[in-house]
Amino acid sequence: MLELRAITAGYERHAPVVRDFSLTVGPGEVVGLLGPSGCGKSTLARVAALLHRPDSGTLLLDGEPVRHWRHRAARAQRTAFGVVFQQPRLAADPRLRLAHLIAEPLYATGRRSEVPDRVTELASAVGLTPDLLTRRPHEVSDGQLQRACLARALVLRPRWLICDEMTAMLDASTGAALVAVVEAYRSTTGAALLAVGHDRTLLNRWCGRTVHWETSCEVPEAS
């Protein structure tokens, strides 16, 4: 159970991007968050993944309020979220080969021994051939890189998946393939999903429940 209660968040104290927003993602539930660009969807996704401290409001994980964000959050809490970002180019360390990119969370949490098995398993699940795994991010396409980023998000078997415009940069077939991978992962593990996007058709088809931001989105007035 992931609950966001009256979250206000942003990058400047006086001009929060997200104002007083509440959302609940139940166990195993798929929630779509739909809204126009620039209204704070990504910020909200970052708050939910413990990557951005909100100015006010509460985030509850299984009823427990979260007190710490980013590196101060307990590692077990942070790794319970698998996050896929919109732009794979920015979300991948340009110096790491794809195999290392996928395995990075395993190295970071001291589970080195699982690396070969998990990388092989996930690479075939997301559709990356072994020769791609030896390349660096600039040597693969956006779609291939996003596949690797999805594999990285799944490598620690998270309980919540947060996909921030995961398919926005991709062509239709790659997008569909990635959605299928997420669904396959969810059906075996029962993980919940918060999918953020602006593609109404995709989210309506993908998600059990879609929250429309328009109603709660305030357009800042020109000052």
Partner: peptide
């Protein structure tokens, strides 16, 4: 502030690891 640092944090990396590896 790059997303790949966010991704590393989400993958459980400590601050020292982020500084040294990324």
């Amino acid at each position: 502030s790059r997303p790949y640092i966010d991704a590393a944090l989400s993958g459980g990396a400590s601050r020292l690891r982020i500084a040294v590896r990324h």
